[in-house]
Amino acid sequence: MTENARRGFLAAGATFAGAIAVAPGLHLIAPALARGAGEPASNANRWGLLIDTNKCSASCDACVKACATENGITEQVADPRQRSQWIRKIDIKEKNGRQHSLPMMCQHCSDPPCVDVCPTGASMKRADGIVLVDRHVCIGCRYCMMACPYKARSFVHEPLTEQNPQVPRGIGCVEACTLCVHRVDKGQLPACVEACTEGAMLFGNLADPNSEISRRIAHEATTQVRADLKLNTGVRYQGI
């Protein structure tokens, strides 16, 4: 059996196991299965998001609030320009007058500029495509912030004390959306996706052609932000 065929078999097996493990009607998707203890993230997965901006209202910021709660982004730096924002709502007004709104966060690029420029290798991409900052080796040079075309990264400007035990973050390091890696590893959805009552955000495995996200991307018109840069983002949008 070739490596690919074996992987496909395993993925199919996992999907089947997921399908029978989850009660019908429960809003949980099969690929987001918890990994066993001691098992590393695998490139059989590439986690991504599909965001339907047609369902996203300008007045709603449920995803932003959920992210702040989940990741313990509670600090109130006096200068708002120095506050961390892992996810933000952007209101867009196109030349023809069309207005819409969408959540913007780390796009979890397949070829991330932040990883290219990081001098110490703190900026890194996990096997399953999640782009993270290893704060153990981040020296706080902010070169990644200069390089990111999405302004997805923030620098922690003050000492912190209110961290979520599952989400370490602290002074002098750069940080960004982790795609809620601590939840994904447990088989849960990212907090923003869970909080979106409009169903505008779909989380799934881009590496599995049978996942819902892959099927929708294959059949519907979707966009990557700054597609011209050819970064192959893990976050895709509809309706922009």
Binding site: K89, D91, I92, K93, K95, Y150, V225
Partner: peptide, 9 residues
Amino acid sequence: IFPGAEITS
């Protein structure tokens, strides 16, 4: 980020 559009956040 969105060439050609006006954006605010």
